[in-house]
Every structure is written in structure tokens, then in C-alpha cells.
Design a protein around this nucleic acid. Sequence first.
DNA 1: CCAGCGACCGACCGATCGGTCAGTGAATGC
DNA 2: GCATTCACTGACCGATCGGTCGGTCGCTGG
Lengths: 223, 223
Amino acid sequence: MDRDFPHDDTTADTAERILAVAERILAVAERLFGQRGYSGVSIRDIARAAGISKANVFHHYASKQALYEAVLERSASRFHALLESLADHQREAAELLEDFSRRHLRNMLERQDALSLYVRHLLDAASEDQGTAAEAILERTYDVLVERFAALQRQGKLAGHADPGVLALTLVGSHLVYVLGRKVLQQRAVPAAERFSKTLIRQLLDGVAAGPRAGGQDQSDRQ
Amino acid sequence: MDRDFPHDDTTADTAERILAVAERILAVAERLFGQRGYSGVSIRDIARAAGISKANVFHHYASKQALYEAVLERSASRFHALLESLADHQREAAELLEDFSRRHLRNMLERQDALSLYVRHLLDAASEDQGTAAEAILERTYDVLVERFAALQRQGKLAGHADPGVLALTLVGSHLVYVLGRKVLQQRAVPAAERFSKTLIRQLLDGVAAGPRAGGQDQSDRQ
DNA sequence: CCAGCGACCGACCGATCGGTCAGTGAATGC
DNA sequence: GCATTCACTGACCGATCGGTCGGTCGCTGG
């Protein structure tokens, strides 16, 4: 078809294909690095999984380290996009927290390779002293959550004695362990993600103390 | 000294030295595997760090994989020892939780290499389907905590609507993220470990909601 | 039509990997 | 005193690592 203008089609197709190769390398590398770690993956593995030659990987990325950093950067920017969509609502604390928890948890579950990659990177960075751009994910998440919690506190929607920083770590940590431990603990009765978010937020908001503080042990919202 | 019986001394010393070599390999391997991951560490690295020849490592451990599993096992048993000391008190919920949080967090901080090793192992296991003995750490921690929380609940020291499983994940997750993020977030005002435990437990028990549920926003226990 | 460019590949490089093996030297049992 | 045992080593193996190089091929601007 379009024998007269194969160029247009082919040109765009080629251009796309070029981008597609670089992008496909990134995608494949993210998956493999996430699953097996930096030194657990060879350039040959990546090339094989992407269906190209090993030399071609070096044609698009100067070195394995450069490719790794490109993967981290891509991963980080994608994660930031999620965070942006969080902090601009004006709802009740319970609703907002539950919504964030659900989104954050779902994102972690959907993009487990990226999450693994990031956790691995944190572990690697823990025994060095460099600060690559990627670990800004945690800083960023922390900052956004802390700011948001502080705002809720100012609006009187959160207890005055609450510590936004500790609360942020609790929230993120609960999600992380849920995802990390999901497979190991699957024979236990670990709730599904949606239900976990709901239960988690309710417990964080209301506390788990026996209830000698105010009311009895009646739980109003049980469905 | 003891020139007449250098044998006794030397014998015991040699026997100790043999044990010491195997043990030193384990210790060194735990540190290196924890810092750089399984495939990021070569037998040569381990031998060099332990001050022995590479072949000697293979003399004590059949393969790199076998050494790795021995390290995991040793790490796991040490961790279990910590857990045992947890579940046998008869105190108030706040006191017990805070004590566990403090211990658990301190243990994580003191043995970061083992923690890193374990998290890495969890990440590796996540993309496979085998179940080595080491990931039983999480199962075990989870089970002990859940059982303990359920007991507290039966005693009426914990709210009836609390979910022991979610609470366990929250507690462990908060600790994990605290340790993992401690370095990255150190320029933020992240509290010291002791203070973090205290704040964390108080928030988990009392909740962070503004206080509209039952009573006013008076918090009785503020010291 | 053709010179140049860039995506892409096969073959190759030195280094390092996990693992083996023949041997050494000191202690032990008989 | 002699054979055995065993912790331990240096030298070596094939495989694989990250990375390079010379070259092919298809497209494009002049």
C-alpha cells in the first residue's frame, strides 16, 4: 500500500522505531533490574529480552551505569507524576487519606518492578554516600505527605498532637511491607489491597487503644 | 606460656581457629551480601575481606549459593532469638508495644547489613516462586505480632475493631521505612529512634483523627 | 547519483566470574 | 615412625562479564 509514498510512512515508522528501541531498552531494563538488581542483570540479558544486539544497547546508552541511571530517572519521573495528583483536594481527612492510600498502594502493586528497583537502589545507596537523583522519590513523597498532613492539622481535621513526619513514614511503610510481604504472607488471611487501605486508614485515624479514653468498645462502622 | 603443654593450648586454639574461619566467612559474607547483594559480591571479595584464599571459602562452603543460604540461616536464627524475648510479658498495651517497637527498631538499626540482606532476599524471592527458609522471618514476625495483638484484644487492652494483621504490618513497615529512609531523610527533622518509637506507638494507639468521634479533642495522656 | 549519517550487528578484547585440583604442611592415631 | 587427615593455598579452567571495533544497510540532503 502507498507504494508512491513509502517514505512518509516508513520515515515516521522508523523514527518511532528508533524511539521505540531506546524506550524498549528502558522498559526491559527496568523490569530486569527490578527483578534481579543491577549486578544480577547483564547487558546481554537486556539485549536478548529486547530482541536486539548487545552492541545496540551500547549504541543507545554509553555504559551499563548510564543505562541504569536513565532507568532510575524514568522511574522517578513517573512516580512523581502520581504524587502531583494527590495534594490538591479539599476533602475530609478520612476521605483524603483513604484515597491516597488506595492510589499509592495500587501504584506500588501495578509497578512492582519499579518499586523493587527503587528499594534496591535505596539499599545500595545506604552503604555508600552518594546522592543520585532517584532517591529523591522518598524525599519527595515524604515532603508532600508531611505538608499535606500539616495542612490538615491546621484545618483542625487532624489531631494537634499528631506528628506529620511519623504519620507519613507509617503510611508509606505500611504500604511497602504490604507489597513486599504480600507473597510471603499470602497463606495468611491478609486482606486485599482495597480493604487493607480502608482498615489501615481507619486504624490510623481512630487508633487501636481499647477505648477507655472516651467511648466504649462499640464499633459503629462495621460492614 | 605453658611451654610444656603447648599442644593443649594449640589444639584448642586450632579448633577455635577453624570455627573462627568458618564463622568469619559467614560474618564477612553477611556484611558484603547485605551491602551489595548476592551477585554484587564475588567469592574473591569475601576471601579478601576475610583474609583467606578463595579456595578456602570453597573448602568450608560447597558453593556460593550454599554460603549465601548459610548466611541467611544464621541471620534468620539470630533474628528469631530477638522475637522470642518479646511475647512473654503481661503488661499494658502501650508499654508492651512501645517496648517492642524500641527493641525491634534498635535491632534493625544495629544490624543493618542483616536487614538489607533480608530485604534483598525478599525482593529476589518476589520474582521467583521458591520458598527458602529465610523468608520465614517475616512470617514469623507477623505471626508473633498478630498472636500477641489478638491476645491483647481478648484481654480488652486493644480495641475490638482493630485488625491485628494490619496493625502488625503497620508497625513493621514503619520501622522498616524509618531505617531505610533514615539516611535519605536525615536533613529533614526525623526524630531519633527512641522518640520515633514513642510517637509511633502513641499515634497508633490514640489515632490521629481530630477527635470528633466520641469525646471532645481532649487528649488526657499528654506528658 | 552519491556522499554521509546513524541505527544496528557479529566478532572480538581483557578482566573477572564460580569452581576445581594437585599439592603443602601441621596435627593426629596407631 | 609412619600413614592418615584436614585446613589451606596457588595455579588453572571454561564461561561470562562490560565494552570496543570494523563494517553493513537503509535513509537523506545536496
